[in-house]
Nucleic acid binder design. Structure first.
Lengths: 347, 347
DNA sequence: AATCGCTTCCAAAGCGCTTTGAATGCCGCG
DNA sequence: CGCGGCATTCAAAGCGCTTTGGAAGCGATT
């Protein structure tokens, strides 16, 4: 069933049928009703391929995912982000085009999708501190929106980010206020912009209290459970182990907890843990009372907002770049407590 | 840069340019080279929208994801599956169209994507025991491939599944051989076909040894870490606690481990744990030596294979349905050991 | 010299929609 | 009675590609 067939069946021109279905005002309301009913009765859906050829818009948003990023935060956090974005796409008649590419194929993927006209815009995930994708997309002249920031990119671009630095300053402050002095940082990969900002936040808080960040208490890697575990095991074996950990995600935090418990230590008493919580739906930070004290910001809400803003941008390019910075909230759970008294024998 | 422009620039017809680029034989090799070079030089990529209108194929595969499934295995396992599928799509010139919909919008999503001609086929994820999507897609007359099975659907359909029953029989046998008799099952949601098959496998193994499955040792829910934790805590508090757990995924297994450790028990000694391991890349079952003894089957490889088969089906509808059944391998880790001697006081 | 068979290329139709520009009918008004 | 204005509808062009059905050129064959 296509436009011609249905218009013939109704004894109307294709023009009128098209306009009736697309809500144009210059069509009689009685006619519109008749057309709409016929469309439903015959299960008519305008051919999207023809439609987008005619309109010049594909009604699709591209997400390019390099496989390696599978390992970093992308995998688990990503699913929630796209759930949020996808919801917004659906409401606005857009679809999500996802392209999973090898790492060296990323540039080509953006170029092709843009040049082929497969998408009307892109969401850029997980920017590094100097992300080349931003310049590439600007050159391609296609709308895009960055989830996060790329510190060293100085040309303006549309983005939304969490105030990662502030979140980690607050996390560290919280522990410092509890009397902790040896605070470990279990961070994401340093090439990720967010990880650098988080480290800066952590370092800033320590330095403000006259504590020099101890490199032996800082780790940076893919945010897996085993990474959190291994890092914590090693640090807890030191002669002067940390009394608290700050983790960049709930995933390594689970590993830290495992290590702490294996050492026969009590969480929230002997060792405190605080993490950044993306409010991931399948890995909730406890039901009701949080397992971990955490700085929290929903990545799903971020996905929604990024999608909304990108669609706005596609419809009407803004005169000046859009930028939003969200603050994470600090939620207190059972994983933190006052620093343990210094063991006499350790002096 | 479109076909007309580039053909004018070359002094050739659009026909010839099109054929040259698409590898048709009726074009002189010298001409073809000239065309290809010009295409690269000018960054020409055929407009996908026009192309698919002309060919009648969208070169897109649809994945419809209801948000609720976010919570069940989908979320974490899904990411790996689509990584595998996406790789295959890229190699074959296909793109992945992902539609995230509310639960009641699922039927509509399939219908629309099919009728609008947005996709050439679908991958169906996470079938239930009597999944209505199969009949729907058959009625829509669009190629599709099911990852898993739907036991109560009797019409044949293309699918690939892991032998879930066998995997769980083997897991239970492994524990039974070690002398365990009180073996708990921490399963996924019962409406999922795979969960039912796994339970059957577990029950079959017990019954073969004359053990009647104990309903108080069986739980079924979304496969989260907290679920595993809560279920294990409760079971371990019984007067006759289980000596072993079988978990449907590594995620609840992590929760079980947490519970066991909190109870001051030793894994692999006091309590054994065995799980189904989807070989998820971001949650690896240990590096080298597995953390958990597990029955393992890579969901990523499954994604690859499903994509390959679906593309074959689109190109050439098979005369009889394609069905593959994969066996999971049993890998032995540190989480299992002989059943502890019965405590004298417990008799 | 006429014909055939190849290779190589092309003009034009068509995919199914949107959109432009114009036509039709009808009303009220001078 | 003629005309402008409004509401409603339509024919046709165009989006950028593929594909059909030739046609041109040329050496080989009869």
């Amino acid at each position: 069933m296509n436009l011609r067939e249905i218009s013939e069946k109704l004894g109307l021109s294709q023009t009128t049928v098209s306009r009736a279905l697309n809500g144009y005002p210059e069509v009689n309301e009685a006619t519109r009703r008749r057309v709409k009913e016929a469309a439903i009765a015959h299960g008519y859906h305008p051919n999207q391929r023809a439609k987008s050829l005619a309109t010049g818009r594909s009604m699709q948003i591209g997400h390019v995912i390099p496989v390696s990023i599978q390992h970093e935060m992308m995998n688990v956090v990503f699913a929630d982000f796209i759930a949020g974005a996808g919801e917004v796409y659906g409401k606005n008649g857009y679809d999500m085009l996802m392209s999973i590419v090898s790492d060296d194929g990323e540039v080509k993927a953006y170029e092709e999708l843009a040049r082929k006209g497969s998408v009307d815009g892109f969401i850029v995930h997980g920017p590094t501190d100097d992300d080349p994708r931003i310049a590439l997309l600007q050159e391609l002249g296609i709308p895009f929106f960055v989830h996060g920031r790329s510190t060293d990119v100085k040309t303006p671009y549309n983005h939304l980010d969490v105030n990662n630095k502030r979140a980690f300053t607050r996390a560290a402050d919280f522990l410092l206020d509890l009397g902790h002095e040896r605070i470990a940082l279990i961070n994401g990969l340093e090439r990720m912009d967010f990880a650098q900002r988080r480290r800066h936040g952590y370092e800033t808080a320590l330095q403000k209290r006259g504590i020099t960040p101890d490199a032996s208490l800082m780790r940076s890697d893919e945010m897996t459970e085993p990474f959190g575990y291994a890092a914590a095991r090693e640090m807890l074996a030191k002669t002067r182990p940390p009394t608290a950990f700050i983790a960049a995600s709930i995933v390594p935090a689970l590993g830290i907890r495992r290590a702490v418990e294996e050492c026969g230590l009590k969480i929230g008493k002997d060792v405190s843990i605080i993490c950044f919580d993306d409010a991931i739906s399948y890995l909730p930070n406890g039901a009701g009372e949080p397992i971990f004290t955490a700085t929290r910001s929903s990545v799903r809400e971020a996905g929604k907002r990024c999608a909304e803003l990108l669609i706005d941008i596609i419809k009407q390019p803004p005169t000046r770049p859009i930028a939003e910075l969200w603050e994470a909230e600090l939620v207190v759970g059972n994983s933190t407590g006052p620093a343990p008294a210094v063991h006499p024998s350790k002096d």
